[in-house]
Design a protein around this nucleic acid. Structure first.
Lengths: 153, 153
DNA sequence: TATTGTTATACTCTATAACTATA
DNA sequence: TATAGTTATAGAGTATAACAATA
């Protein structure tokens, strides 16, 4: 087990302390953890998210989901088709050309299991912070995600 | 300009308040902003990062960079080749089979410009927070990125 | 033998353009 | 005409396997 010194170079990291890269790395760590935790359900994070969303919004359309998740219409097609193939969601006729999406019994079971896993993963990281820190983190992330208030640039 | 009501459905969002998804969205917003801001330099965020890293660590190898950035050896090849093609970095002989990477004059110019842009983007978001909030955010992101202290799972 | 650089390949995610169907 | 779903396609990003070169 002597693979600690794998290189003759110990790099100085000028980007590690930057906000943008810290966000990126923290996000990647949590997403990787979530992905590994959902793997036993044969669900990716985006699929679990869609199950939770349809559960909370029965009869929504896949375009509705795409808008909320920032996923283009065209890219929703294989996602929804995959969950239909797994018999977790079903389509019925909706207004216009849209479909009304709902969870099947198996889909509701998967949604419940996925929610439990997502709660557990979030909980593991939230437990590293005290309530005051969590409140500050929440507020900061919300403001960053909302983008720059005025100028779009 | 009446494209406010683009759908008959206003979705409830059960994943929006989750830590993992807030991190992901905040990261995506900042990365998109950084990408757009670097575009005039014809540099992607990962290329700008590599320029900063080589500037801080002259004569490092591309495997060193890959290890620090979490990019596989095989995927470093086109990245480094692209920056060599842009005449921003150059390779000289290193130990073993490795190359010693360094910035050309044009690369040093680009590195300086990229650093200024990265400072500006980070600054725009950091200015939305007071110093106490920034300190809490930094600490929280660092701990999340470090992963779970003990059990890997 | 271990490490580096390299090629080839595949899979996911994302983006655009174009087409069809429906209110 | 505007919206929804679909198809095809192209570009990043990332992963693995295999190979050559070098200490």
């Amino acid at each position: 087990m002597n693979h600690i010194l794998q290189s003759g170079f110990n790099l100085i990291d000028p980007v590690g302390p930057r906000l943008g890269y810290m966000l990126r790395r923290a996000s990647a760590v949590m997403m990787a953890h979530l992905g590994a935790s959902l793997a036993p359900l044969d669900l990716r994070p985006v699929e679990a998210t869609i199950l939770l969303l349809i559960g909370a919004n029965p009869n929504c359309s896949q375009s509705d989901l795409g808008r909320l998740l920032g996923i283009k219409r065209a890219n929703m097609v294989p996602l929804i088709a995959g969950l239909v193939a797994k018999q977790m969601i079903s389509k019925s006729v909706g207004g216009g050309r849209s479909h009304a999406l709902s969870l099947t019994a198996a889909g509701e079971t998967a949604r419940g299991a996925a929610e439990k896993i997502m709660d557990a993963v979030d909980g593991r990281y939230e437990s590293m912070l005290d309530p005051a820190q969590r409140a500050v983190l929440d507020d900061a992330l919300r403001r960053i995600a909302a983008g720059l208030g005025n100028g779009e640039e």
